[in-house]
Design a protein around this nucleic acid. Structure first.
Lengths: 152, 152
DNA sequence: AGTCAATTGAAATTTAATCTCAATTTCAGT
DNA sequence: ACTGAAATTGAGATTAAATTTCAATTGACT
């Protein structure tokens, strides 16, 4: 599935299918969480595969370009990515207290955005919506962690 | 107005009202566009005021904390800020071709977000929505600039 | 004016991300 | 399978945003 997509993508662009690129692809799709490049790199090393940091970054760009991976958000500690196996488009809520990420999708929301684009004669291609706040659990626990500490 | 707010904010926190902080404040509110720290710094130098890069960054954090300035978005080239004089809350559309930023606000959108938060028992505090696409002008001109070059 | 904690600035540091370039690997064509 | 051209890799250098350091300076309170 993702292997074939990536393979085709590389073929179309005249790029080569290397061991390193496959390692990155495999590792990215071996779990279903958000990830950052550095951790992905460590994970790859850890699982006996090989790919340098440079290759991880380079391959990540290709994966994004191919649509297999999405740049999920930017934080002050670098970018966070997610793969798109089964993952349709969705947006995020992030708890300022515990850092928990909740994914959600709303058709209504999508429609209104289309409407807004129309009103502005803007041809919308993609969007990112990030809602910050306090999740249910932290709300009940009464904010043990301070907001300043919590800022991702 | 903004002077008084900042003054009070500093007072409340036991911080000092320095020439440098005032320079930053003045420059931030002297124009109504989005800005990045480096440009703000150059602008300050240019207008005869003084404040080092370090002070610009430090003051910017204070201004955000005070609510006078908002971190508008993160790009691969650093953060972009905007002041909030007259600016109520709004979201952004960004043209992938020319980089133009269009601000918009939609009550409907806000309401749906509240609804979504409720559904997830999430206490939403703030949000950022960024729609990427092609603006009217660029759409007509037929994408002179390539998307890759255009990525802010 | 005197005191002292807060502040400043130049330069160093940190950190994510990108780039360099010699050595290696892929792959299309034989 | 072999070959050669072109793409790719990796270690380390580089870039650039943002933060930190620390000695010298400044603001604010008495």
């Amino acid at each position: 599935m993702e292997q074939k997509i990536f393979r085709d993508f590389l073929g179309r662009k005249g790029l080569k299918l290397t061991r390193e690129r496959m390692s990155v692809l495999r590792e990215v799709f071996s779990f279903h969480d958000h990830f950052d490049p550095e951790n992905l790199y460590l994970r790859i090393r850890g699982s006996g595969l090989k790919a340098s940091r440079a290759s991880v970054y380079r391959t990540l760009s290709l994966l994004v370009e191919s649509g297999l991976v999405r740049l999920s958000m930017r934080t002050e500690r670098g970018n966070i990515y997610e793969h798109r196996f089964g993952h349709g488009h969705h947006d995020h809520m992030i708890c300022n207290s515990c850092g928990k990420i909740i994914e959600f999708y709303s058709e209504k929301l999508e429609n209104i955005q289309d409407e807004i684009c129309d009103n502005n004669k803007f041809d919308g291609v993609s969007h990112t919506l990030e809602i910050r706040g306090i999740c249910e659990r932290c709300g009940k626990q009464g904010n043990k962690r301070r907001q300043e500490e919590a800022e991702i």
